[in-house]
Design a protein around this nucleic acid. Structure first.
Lengths: 110, 110
DNA sequence: ATGTATTTATTCTACATTTACGAAAATTGA
DNA sequence: TCAATTTTCGTAAATGTAGAATAAATACAT
């Protein structure tokens, strides 16, 4: 791949970050994916996707202030960039377009 | 991966096979992808996706009769199976669900 | 106040799966 | 056999998955 493409998992993470706005960080993303889908990715999977997504310019991040909860390192909060939005929108419209071109006949025998 | 997941490219191929019904085979798929998207995958990429998709049970195939054209090996025609349809439908509805949960605020600053 | 335990998070490292490419092999009609 | 398609194969690169290691912040005992 040319490094500019959005993988399946990457797209999911991007969408979840949107849903979680403005409180998207590693663990919260992991939990939200577990809640909304059938999968429970390991935390390492999330973070490697996040760093690739940031490299590609689809995400930006900043460190949050420390909270006053029990323990914890500072959270790294993520947001979608303009080009990230563009990427998921392109995927969305491409899929809709294709879907609409599938003839009814293709499902008839199922 | 657990062997049951649908990669990004695999999903695209599946959709294109629907669009091309009932004449989806390697080269035609490659050409249709080139026509409808920004990418031009090599023929080998198509065939490796096809064989994985068939292994996963999302596709079935059969050899077409020989044509009366100049030359050519017999085409291997592909069709989406019931579980293939189910897989793309699940992805579609999950993405729509997530998309609808993204607050407007998430885009405000772009 | 200082040090240690506990909690929450991110980083690091390794490996599996998917995607990509292009050359080679196979099959068919002329 | 030759030319035209099409699939198959071998290899490399990108993406996805996992869990242990590390870091940082608070709580608590001394």
């Amino acid at each position: 791949m040319k490094g500019t493409h959005l993988g399946e998992f990457e797209e999911l993470v991007l969408l979840i970050i949107g849903v979680l706005y403005p409180n998207a960080y590693g663990l919260a993303i992991k939990q939200e994916i577990a809640d909304q889908t059938k999968r429970s990715p390991a935390i390492g999977a999330i973070h490697s996707a996040l760093s690739r997504l940031e490299d590609k310019g689809f995400l930006k991040s900043h460190l949050a202030d420390a909270t006053h909860e029990r323990g914890g390192r500072r959270k790294k909060l993520y947001e979608i960039t303009a080009s990230g939005k563009q990427a998921i929108e392109y995927n969305r419209s491409l899929r809709n377009t294709l879907w609409n071109q599938i003839p009814e006949l293709a499902w008839k025998k199922l």
